[in-house]
Design a binder for these strands. Structure first.
Lengths: 261, 261
DNA sequence: CGCTTAATTGAGAGCCTTCAATCATCGTGG
DNA sequence: CCACGATGATTGAAGGCTCTCAATTAAGCG
């Protein structure tokens, strides 16, 4: 993908700007394009925050907590804008799950320009809270939910992002490994595998090969994830009843995933 | 605190705006002031996102995962701006830890006005990523760290926010209960108490009464929290060595807390 | 000073992790 | 096209950390 194409994709899809407009040109002057092969990590200036536009492909944003332990903070797909923190409490990295094209901007200068243009500013003020709220939902999952609940929530979140409907079920082609799933929801690869096996044995999902999963019963999966189903102003009795409807293999949880900025 | 005073505090401290300026007036038209007594929850329109300015006091933003289980997503203090999600996967609540004054805005209209004013937009584009990055650091703690690491990280984060230096140590007057600490870092009240006891026995902290904690050895506390100390471009040997310097009562983790937008 | 509530401490159980082995998948080369 | 090898995934057994349940102690308030 040529620099021109990538940048036009950026201005158009991310902010609804016409190519060649003043803001677009100023932002373009800041942009640094990168092509990452599967498994490659973005080369960024880690001394200051960055804003990344994922033109196409898929990436993971990971925080390195220990030499051998990383927490994946979010997954991103084509069209997403990612806010990448500078080195702070943890060292972060942005890694391509598949071949990926991206645009990198230094955050301060990027926001300086964006703030001056109402259209761009409004777009960012829409995306940033969304990413924040997704991250919070993730924190809820990591802090309060069981392994099964986290995995079910993960699958549902991924379905919303990259799921394809096929008849009366849903197909999911995951670009990430079991390890990356585990690193995302705070579980070991073995636990992920075991819980996936439980969902399979319950007839809720059907893994096909290494990366494809067919979702046979989304309602049951949602019950597994244990989200708070529009609970406000619903009587406790009714709420309790609904929660108990999940089957025997179903126990506790809830979750969210993938936060474009 | 009168409406006028609260609002002026808002425009001045949060955005550096002069009272009576055009944006200020338009934002004021959206504002809904609330005074919360300790323990009171904000009355908000949960059908749409809200932006809250905490004029003075302290609040917790909590997600209700289950009837008896809540995850505190962030603590806020005077001057903070909070992005509060509408009802989604979870029901959120904003509760006062002490008597608190706040201003509530509907998010969409708020951002519409803010985007039109470069100064306000720039201020928000500075605060939102900060809150996002804090939330991510919290996710790392919840997903990867041990109980001791989480508590140490919590204390350090709180120290940065509301700690007072007193001689060669630091005093911390926590406005939240043990239960709220636990709900914030994903632990039970008993585990919080036990880990705090471990830090006390190690001579690192000295609890005084229910809410005050004296931090006697911040370096040791930092070691307990197990943050990645500017690890990029440092040899593995050196890194390993540093990590092993933490004492016997010290094991694994790292953390962050309190995200004003 | 006594009461109510919060915090601490202890014992046992459960869930996830760790360690280890087997199996499957997929890319490569014959 | 099939066989092979390497890597990833699954499954099993044992252990550890945190949770749950329960009792005791302390703090703060009237």
């Amino acid at each position: 993908m040529a620099q021109e194409d990538t940048f036009e994709l950026f201005t158009r899809t991310a902010f609804g700007l016409e190519p060649g407009c003043p803001v677009g040109l100023r932002l373009k002057a800041l942009a640094c394009q990168q092509s990452l092969a599967k498994g490659g990590s973005a080369t960024l200036d880690w001394s200051c925050d960055q804003v990344i536009f994922v033109a196409c492909g898929a990436t993971k944003l990971a925080a390195h907590a220990t030499e051998d332990r990383e927490q994946i903070v979010a997954f991103h797909f084509g069209g997403d804008v990612v806010s990448v923190p500078a080195d702070g409490l943890y060292a972060y990295s942005l890694t391509a799950l598949v071949d990926t094209e991206l645009l990198a901007f230094p955050a301060r200068e990027f926001f300086d320009q964006a703030a001056a243009d109402p259209t761009t500013a409004r777009a960012l003020l829409g995306r940033l809270p969304l990413a924040l709220h997704r991250c919070r939902d993730k924190a809820v999952a990591l802090g309060q939910k069981s392994a099964l609940e986290r995995l079910a929530g993960f699958l549902l979140a991924m379905t919303e992002r990259i799921g394809r409907v096929e008849g009366n079920m849903c197909l999911l082609d995951l670009p990430m490994s079991r390890r990356e799933i585990g690193d995302s929801i705070g579980l070991t690869i073995e636990t992920v595998s075991r819980q996936l096996g439980a969902l399979r044995d319950a007839g809720i999902v059907a893994p096909e090969g290494r990366s494809r999963i067919a979702l046979l019963d989304i309602a049951a999966l949602r019950a597994c994830a244990g989200f708070a189903e529009a609970v406000r102003d619903i009587s406790p009795q009714k709420r309790k009843f609904d929660l108990d409807q999940c089957g025997t293999a179903v126990r506790r949880l809830r979750e969210s995933e993938t936060g474009g900025i």
